[in-house]
């Protein structure tokens, strides 16, 4: 209890050093939070875009019902196929008409349906495997009843690449900033320690144990970490509400959300990193 009092007193006594550390830690954790926030929102956004994982087969106009059934039956055996949707010539026209709405009259002059029947295949998103999708497409190309295969190949690939690249970079950035937060706490505690070296010397000569001497510093380092974490969280909230409130908003930004986990992650990260930094600092000091 007395240690806590000492820690709080010292927080106030060395408030400028502590404030500086809190700002540095908050900045580090803010960036960490922003990275997590982006990851979370990208993940959410891509989950809402299953059409990216779709293969569309345009079939020969004169394909028989029997051949269609056969094709569907074959596709059903493929493990990566999640859903199959057959759209006949007539269905396609109906769809077109509804999507044209008021402009549907432009189709009226047609005496023949110009559209092709198609099959829309939805590929399993979980355990997505590009090679297997490509193998399936190759196989389908062997069918002479299929005129054309449309597969969001490049888009898919780039999304996949960007996402995994981003994940990789995020991991690196997170690691980097975690280490720097530890380092800030480490340096702060070390500075505080040296500033109070004489005081500690006196405590020691009076018979203070190691843990009595360490406790206030560890508490202080941890409080700095937690406060930094909370400040970073506040910063993230501010950032999100600013993005959402922009007068000329990019539509996607409206969808950004703060995951509840972040409310726990940032302060806890501050606590853990602060504790780690101060413990390392004290462990390396001789007294």
């Amino acid at each position: 209890m007395y240690s806590l009092k000492l820690a709080l007193k010292s927080l106030w006594y060395d408030k400028w050093i502590n404030l500086l550390s809190i700002v540095s830690i908050a900045t580090g954790l803010f960036i960490l939070g922003t990275v997590l926030l982006s990851l979370y929102n990208i993940e959410r956004a891509t989950q809402n875009m299953p059409e990216r994982f779709t293969i569309t087969l345009f079939l020969n106009e004169k394909i028989s019902k029997k051949d269609v059934d056969l094709l569907i039956k074959r596709l059903k055996r493929e493990s990566i196929v999640k859903e199959i949707d057959y759209i006949s010539k007539e269905d396609a026209l109906k769809e077109l008409k509804t999507s044209l709405k008021d402009a549907a009259y432009i189709l009226e002059g047609l005496d023949e349906n110009p559209l092709f029947p198609s099959i829309v295949i939805k590929v399993r998103r979980e355990n997505f495997d590009r090679d297997r999708v490509e193998a399936l497409i190759k196989k389908l190309k062997g069918f002479n009843q299929i005129d054309e295969i449309i597969y969001a190949d490049e888009i898919l690939e780039s999304i996949q690449d960007v996402y995994s690249g981003f994940k990789f970079v995020s991991l690196g950035v997170s690691l980097l900033f975690s280490v720097s937060v530890v380092f800030v706490c480490y340096s702060t505690v070390k500075i505080l320690f040296f500033r109070r070296k004489e005081e500690i010397e006196v405590y020691k000569l009076l018979g203070a144990t190691r843990s009595f001497i360490r406790a206030p510093f560890i508490i202080e380092g941890t409080i700095i970490g937690i406060v930094g974490g909370v400040a970073a969280l506040a910063g993230n909230y501010l950032l999100v509400s600013l993005l959402k409130g922009m007068t000329n908003p990019v539509a996607v930004l409206k969808l950004i959300e703060i995951p509840v986990q972040l409310m726990v992650i940032l302060p806890v990260a501050g606590l853990v990193l602060g504790l780690t930094g101060s413990t390392i600092a004290l462990g390396r000091l001789k007294y």
Binding site: E198, V202, L205, L206, G207, A208, R210
Partner: peptide, 23 residues
Amino acid sequence: EKAIPYLRRNIGIVFQDFKLLYN
């Protein structure tokens, strides 16, 4: 090493340079 603090509690020390905490 760990016993030193407990031993020191049996010893009072008066230093020539006081070693008081001025704050």
